[in-house]
């Protein structure tokens, strides 16, 4: 019998669409790639709560307020599922949060943009969650079991997020000129950051090939971006708003929309920490964590006392 090495066996499992589970052997780089990617994803969920939370107290109807709260709460839940998935790889949530708070870890740059009007709540649901869903659906088939299961749960729960956003915008577009102006303005501000969410062009994305081979990724950044542009442009037409891209044009031959060049300088600037809200977002997360320290400590201390008392009572 031919000896196959353990790395070949691992790849053979992946090729056969067999999920990798926490205790299975895996290459160190596979583990590291997953930790980095899932942690970034988790951080994006909880930092992503902030721009929307900015409007909770100003939601204009009780129905919208409840929907917005429920949506942001889901994002917290999704962060939690994802942090749990990372923990199966041997890294605790505390360590990941330390990396987030120190600025070492990254999260989706989109959340470093400000939410300026109520239309931003709709636009985030429509564009940002839309792009996220595009990214996440293939992740449900990711080769790593816990990540894949978390994504299945997340995708199921997220299905209302994009719809509520689009419905919110539709309602505003049926309203006054002031409301329509807010929607178009939100589109102008969020469109480019939204299509940047898929990451650098394939040519500039060195890890893509390996991630595809490991079936952590199923489609390249540009493939997903194209798909997103194609469906979103049609949705913008139904809304009656303009996509802020003069180069946007249907390409009969390709069967896709052509679109303009993303400003990658701005993208990298924001990734590196110099976006409009990077500092505020990190400070808010860090503040919540630091201010919560005494609460977490108290709960631990109480749990200790309680278990000691129970032991004494039983003795």
């Amino acid at each position: 019998m031919k000896e196959t090495n353990i790395e070949d066996q691992f790849q053979a499992k992946i090729d056969a669409e067999i999920k990798i589970e926490p205790k299975d052997w895996m290459p160190d780089t596979y583990r590291k790639t997953l930790i980095r990617q899932i942690a970034q994803h988790a951080h994006s969920e909880i930092v992503g709560m902030l721009p929307e939370a900015n409007w909770i107290t100003r939601a204009p109807t009780l129905r919208r307020k409840a929907a917005l709260l429920a949506k942001i709460q889901d994002e917290g839940g999704h962060g939690l599922y994802l942090y749990s998935a990372v923990e199966t790889l041997g890294v605790e949530r505390d360590e990941l949060l330390d990396e987030l708070h120190s600025g070492k870890a990254k999260y989706s740059s989109i959340f470093n943009y400000p939410t300026l009007t109520w239309a931003d709540m709709g636009t985030i649901g429509w564009l940002v969650d839309g792009a996220a869903i595009m990214n996440q659906i293939p992740l449900c088939r990711c080769s790593y079991g816990p990540y894949s299961r978390a994504m299945i749960r997340i995708c199921k729960e997220e299905s209302f997020h994009q719809r509520q956003g689009y419905e919110l915008l539709l309602t505003m577009m049926k309203g006054t000129d002031a409301q329509k102006r807010m929607v178009q303005d939100a589109m102008n501000r969020w469109w480019w950051p939204a299509i940047s969410m898929f990451g650098p062009n394939d040519a500039d994305s060195p890890h893509t090939a390996q991630s595809m081979k490991w079936k952590i990724k199923r489609f390249t950044n540009d493939e997903l971006r194209q798909k997103f542009v194609d469906v979103t442009v049609e949705q913008a037409k139904i809304l009656g708003i303009t996509v802020p891209d003069p180069d946007l044009k249907w390409n009969e031959e390709r069967g896709h929309y052509d679109f303009g060049q993303i400003n990658w300088d701005e993208f990298w600037e924001v990734v590196k920490g110099d976006g409009p809200c990077n500092r505020e977002r990190l400070a808010a997360r860090k503040n919540a964590w630091d201010e919560g320290a005494w609460v977490r400590e108290a709960a631990s201390a109480y749990a200790d006392k309680k278990s000691k008392r129970q032991k004494t009572a039983a003795a």
């Binding site: 909880i46 009780l62 709260l69 942001i72 709460q73």
Partner: peptide, 29 residues
Amino acid sequence: LGEWCGHGPVLEQDIAMTNIALDCIGQAR
């Protein structure tokens, strides 16, 4: 309670407070 959303002392409790906020708003409606 909604003001806590995104700023809770730990993720699990952030979620818990939002649940209560949602109950309250539902009752108010």
